[in-house]
C-alpha cells in the first residue's frame, strides 16, 4: 500500500513536470507570462506557508518581503548592471537577514500581536518605498523599469518561454529544498512549536532560534519570488506592494492549503487566474471574491484545495480495498 502510494505520487509528479514543460509551447505567450508569474507566486506562498502554516506565526505583511526582493533585483540590474540570474541569491540573502532581524522582536509577539505588527509593516511598505531619501535607488513613485532577458546559448525559445523555464527550474529547486526541510526533523520541530509551544520548549527545542530562523527562511523564499516577479513583469513601483499584496498571499495559502507544500502551487494558480476572470465583472469583484473565499474556506474547507484533494485521493484508493 505504501509502495503503491509512493509510485503513484512519482508518476503524478512526472506527469505534472512533463505537462509543465509542454505548456509554453501549447499556449499563447501572454498565457506563458501568466504561468511564469504564477510560478513565482508559488515560491512566495511556500515561504509564507513555512512561517504561517507550519510554524503558526501569522504574517499579514509578507508583501513587504516580496517588495524587498523585487527592489533588490531591480536596483541591482538597473543601477549596477548585475545579470538577472545573479540577483536571485542577492534578493534571497537580503530578505533572509531582514526577515531574521524582524523575526527577533517578533519572537516576543504571540499570535495576534505578530499579526498586528506585520499588518502595520504591510501598510507602511509603499510609503517607505516612495520615501524621497531613497529615491535615488528606488526611483520614487515612478519605480524602476527593467529589461526582459534574452534566452542564453542561442536556445530556440522566445523571451517569455525562456523566462518560464528559468522560473520553473528555480521553483523546482526551491520546492525540493523546502520539501527536504519540512519533511524531516526541522519540519516536525516547526509544527511542534506551532501546536505545543510550551511542550516543545521543555523537550529541548530552541523555540526562539527556530522562530527567528523560520522568519528569515520564509522571507528568503518570498524575496526570491519577489525578484522573479520583478524580472517577469519588468517593472517595480511602490503601489504594487500594498497591504493587498500581503492579503493576496494570505488568500493563496488559505485557498491552496495551510501547512501543505503542494498547496502553494494550487494557491498560486488561484491568485493568478481567478482575479483575471473576476476582473471582467468589476474592478472590485476580485477582492470581493477573495474575501468570500477567505471566509468560506475557513468555515468549509480549512485544509484548502490540497487537503480536499488528499481526502479525495484517500477515498478513491480506499474504496477497492474495502470490498
Amino acid at each position: 500500500m505504501d509502495m503503491t502510494d509512493r509510485t503513484w505520487r512519482r508518476i503524478g509528479l512526472a506527469a505534472l513536470l512533463a505537462l509543465a514543460c509542454l505548456l509554453p509551447f501549447l499556449v499563447s505567450s501572454y498565457r506563458t507570462f501568466q504561468l511564469t508569474s504564477a510560478l513565482s507566486y508559488a515560491i512566495a506562498l511556500l515561504g509564507l506557508n513555512i512561517l504561517t502554516g507550519y510554524n503558526g506565526q501569522i504574517s499579514l505583511g509578507h508583501g513587504a518581503f516580496y517588495a524587498i526582493g523585487a527592489y533588490v533585483a531591480a536596483i541591482l540590474m538597473d543601477r549596477f548592471g548585475v545579470p538577472y540570474w545573479a540577483t536571485l541569491p542577492a534578493a534571497g540573502a537580503v530578505c533572509l537577514v531582514i526577515g531574521f532581524l524582524f523575526g527577533l522582536p517578533a519572537l516576543r509577539l504571540e499570535g495576534l500581536y505578530l499579526a498586528l505588527a506585520t499588518f502595520a509593516l504591510a501598510l507602511a511598505t509603499p510609503q517607505i518605498l516612495k520615501y524621497k531619501l531613497l529615491e535615488d535607488w528606488t526611483g520614487g513613485v515612478q519605480g524602476i523599469v527593467i529589461l526582459k532577458p534574452d534566452p542564453p546559448f542561442g536556445l530556440p525559445l522566445d523571451q517569455d518561454q525562456w523566462l518560464y523555464f528559468f522560473t520553473l527550474v528555480v521553483a523546482i529547486v526551491m520546492f525540493w529544498l523546502g520539501r527536504n526541510l519540512l519533511a524531516g526533523r526541522i519540519g516536525r520541530a516547526l509544527v511542534a512549536i506551532r501546536d505545543h509551544p510550551i511542550a516543545a520548549e521543555t523537550m529541548g527545542v530552541d523555540t526562539a532560534f527556530y522562530k527567528a530562523t523560520t522568519f528569515g527562511v520564509s522571507a528568503l523564499y518570498t524575496g526570491v519570488a519577489g525578484a522573479l516577479g520583478a524580472i517577469v513583469i519588468q517593472f517595480v513601483a511602490p503601489d504594487s506592494f500594498t497591504l493587498f499584496l500581503s492579503i493576496t498571499l494570505l488568500v493563496g495559502i488559505v485557498v491552496g492549503g495551510l501547512a501543505s507544500i503542494s498547496g502553494a502551487l494550487w494557491g498560486a494558480l488561484f491568485i493568478q487566474f481567478v482575479p483575471n476572470v473576476a476582473d471582467h465583472i468589476s474592478k472590485a469583484a476580485p477582492w470581493a471574491i477573495y474575501g468570500l473565499f477567505l471566509i468560506a474556506f475557513m468555515y468549509l474547507m480549512p485544509t484548502g484545495i490540497a487537503g480536499f484533494l488528499r481526502t479525495l485521493a484517500a477515498r478513491l484508493t480506499r474504496r477497492p480495498s474495502r470490498r
Partner: peptide
C-alpha cells in the same frame, strides 16, 4: 487565532471591495 485573523481579513477585503463596487 489564525482562523479568526483570516476571517477578519476576509471581512476587511469584502467591506473594502463592496464599498468600491
Amino acid at each position: 487565532v489564525l482562523a479568526v485573523v483570516i476571517v477578519f481579513i476576509g471581512l476587511l477585503v469584502i467591506l473594502n471591495s463592496v464599498a468600491g463596487w
